[in-house]
Every structure is written in C-alpha cells, then in structure tokens.
C-alpha cells in the first residue's frame, strides 16, 4: 500500500526493474556512440569538403601537373584530401605506364583509370564508415526503448493487481520509470536518423564531385604528349 512520494529522476532509474535498467544502460551506450560518430563524421565530412574545394581550385588554376603532384604530396597526411589522393594515384600510375615503352595510349588510360577508381573506392569506404551504425541506431533504438517501456508497464500493472484499492498513484511511478526508457531510445534515434540522412546526402555529393574530377583528369592526361 506504500505509495512512493519521491518521483525524482534518480529514484525512477534506480527503482526500475533489472531488465529496464539493462535496456536503459544499453541505450545510453548506443546513444553515446552514435553521438560520438555524429560529431566525428561531421568534422570529417566538413574538412573533406573544404579540402576538395581547395584542391579543385588548385587543379584548375595550375595547369602544370608535375607541380600539382608535388603540391598534392607535399601536404602532410593530415591535410591531404581524398581528391588529392585520387589525383596522386592516377598521376603516379600514368607516369609509370608512360615510362614503359610499347604500351599504347588506350592501355595507359585504362590503367590510370583503374588506379583512380581503386583509390576512389577506398576513399568512399572511409567516408561512409560508421554511417551504417547511425542508420541501425536510428531504426532499432526506438524499439529497444519501447521494449523497456512495455516491460516496465507490465511490471507496474502486475504490482497493481496485488493492491486491493487501486489508484492511479500505484501505477504512475512504474509507468513513469518505464517511459524513461522510451525517452532515451528516442533521444538516441532522432539525431542518428537526421545525421544519417544529412551525411548520406553530403557523401553522395562528394562522390559525384570525385567522379567528375576523375573524368576531367582523364581528359587532361589524354591530352598530355
């Protein structure tokens, strides 16, 4: 018959059943990780966009490929963008193939394209890493939270059955503590979904830029004597 008067937040969590606590702990870890990846990807994509713009600028203003290659390789790994790496891989392959006599022009271009393609794919893989995690957090964590809530409410009603004179005050604490799980699930899911959509769009745009650069650079190389 004892009706708890204290509904403080800490009290709610510490008095929840073990399974609800487990669910809340899991959601907390998932939410921390997803936010970490959100910020990590935010910084990474932002710097990638900046570096891509810088290198495109340099590429179109500087027609000397050797100087450009030096420029691309001189920057430390930290300041080397994906586009610079694609360019460097293509140019290295092109120079190597050119040095070998008896390789016809189309074969040289084929090899150069393949080298660029490989680097491009590796870069895309790097950019897209962790996005799958954000996507699954966005779709699964509301359900996990809901599971915790349903379990908590089940317990609350079972407790209600043991009490003769039922009032709302008997169920309310149980439901409130169960709903904390849903709140945490949504807190993890909403930013994850927003971030996933945003980053997928950003990465898509970057990939289009890399693609067009590869084509344009192939043309430039083809014109080389």
């Amino acid at each position: 018959m004892e009706v708890t008067q204290d509904l403080s937040f800490v009290h709610l969590i510490s008095h929840a059943s073990v399974l609800v606590q487990l669910v809340m702990g899991l959601l907390l870890v998932v939410s921390l990780m997803s936010w970490w990846y959100i910020f990590l990807k935010m910084f990474a994509i932002r710097s990638e966009v900046r570096l891509t713009e810088e290198f495109e600028d340099a590429f179109w203003h500087n027609q000397n490929l050797n100087e450009l290659y030096k420029y691309a390789n001189s920057s430390s790994l930290r300041h080397q963008g994906a586009l610079e790496r694609i360019f460097a891989a293509g140019f290295t392959e092109f120079v190597k193939l050119k040095k070998q006599h008896g390789v016809d022009a189309s074969a040289v271009m084929e090899g150069t394209r393949r080298a660029m393609r490989a680097t491009y794919q590796r870069e895309m893989d790097r950019l897209e890493s962790h996005l799958a995690f954000l996507a699954s957090v966005g779709s699964v964590s509301p359900y996990v939270g809901l599971f915790g809530t349903v379990w908590g409410i089940m317990n609350a009603f079972r407790g209600l059955a043991n009490v003769g004179q039922a009032t709302l005050a008997h169920v309310a604490p149980g439901i409130a503590e169960a709903l904390v799980a849903t709140a945490m699930g949504l807190f993890a899911a909403i930013p994850a979904v927003v971030a996933y959509n945003r980053y997928a769009y950003d990465i898509n745009r970057l990939s289009t830029r890399f693609d067009s650069f590869t084509e344009e650079f192939s043309n430039v190389l083809q014109r080389q004597p």
Binding site: W35, F39, A44
Partner: peptide
C-alpha cells in the same frame, strides 16, 4: 592501404 589520420576523435567524444 593507408592508415588514415582521424584528428577529431577526442573533440567528438567530448562533444558527445
């Protein structure tokens, strides 16, 4: 295979 430098791990963790 290149080991990519991830400079933002710490600030991202702190922000999270």
């Amino acid at each position: 295979a290149t080991v990519y430098y991830e400079p933002y791990k710490l600030p991202a963790g702190i922000l999270a």
